[in-house]
């Protein structure tokens, strides 16, 4: 018998929202598209001296709706001090993803620092949209630099 009350509360909430989430011990929240890249992002954070708070695969499309749900789940963990968003755009254009991420941050009212790394189709345009936003977002195109920044902000 499956009993969701026996599950980690964030993992149960994520499962309900069709997001793949595993909670970990650290303080850097991760939101990534793709399971492999999500693991790779956690490893990169660790490599630069930080500790990931979770595994989260937001899925291939990374729409505003899914990103907002993902933020809500990550922010339920009181240890999280910063969120690193790592999206490799693929078929979906990065400017559209950037707009979705911005709208989601406003919708959820995120008050901790957010580092966003966008790569792929129209990545530069995406970064420009993020940097013009009236909320505090670090937009960093290089994954190593983005991970280092997140580690620094989590200290």
């Amino acid at each position: 018998m499956y009993d969701e009350t026996q599950e980690d509360s964030q993992e149960a909430e994520a499962a309900k929202n069709d997001l793949s989430y595993v909670s970990l011990e650290g303080n850097i929240g991760c939101m990534v598209n793709g399971a492999g890249l999500a693991m790779g992002t956690m490893d990169t954070i660790k490599f630069f001296g930080g500790n990931p708070a979770n595994f989260l695969d937001v899925g291939g499309t990374a729409t505003q709706e899914r990103v907002a749900k993902a933020f809500k789940i990550i922010l339920r963990d009181p240890d999280v001090k910063v969120v690193l968003v790592n999206i490799f755009g693929g078929i979906v254009r990065c400017d559209l993803i950037a707009e979705g991420v911005l709208a989601a941050i406003k919708e959820v009212d995120v008050t901790i620092p957010v580092v966003v790394r966008l790569e792929g189709n129209n990545a530069e345009l995406g970064a420009k949209i993020l940097s013009k936003a009236d909320i505090e977002i670090e937009s960093i195109n290089d994954l190593a630099d983005a991970a280092k920044k997140a580690v620094e902000l989590a200290e």
């Binding site: 793709g34 492999g36 890249l37 490799f88 693929g90 790569e119 792929g120």
Partner: peptide
């Protein structure tokens, strides 16, 4: 084995 890691 992974899509987005291939892209990286």
């Amino acid at each position: 084995r992974s899509g987005t890691l291939t892209y990286e």
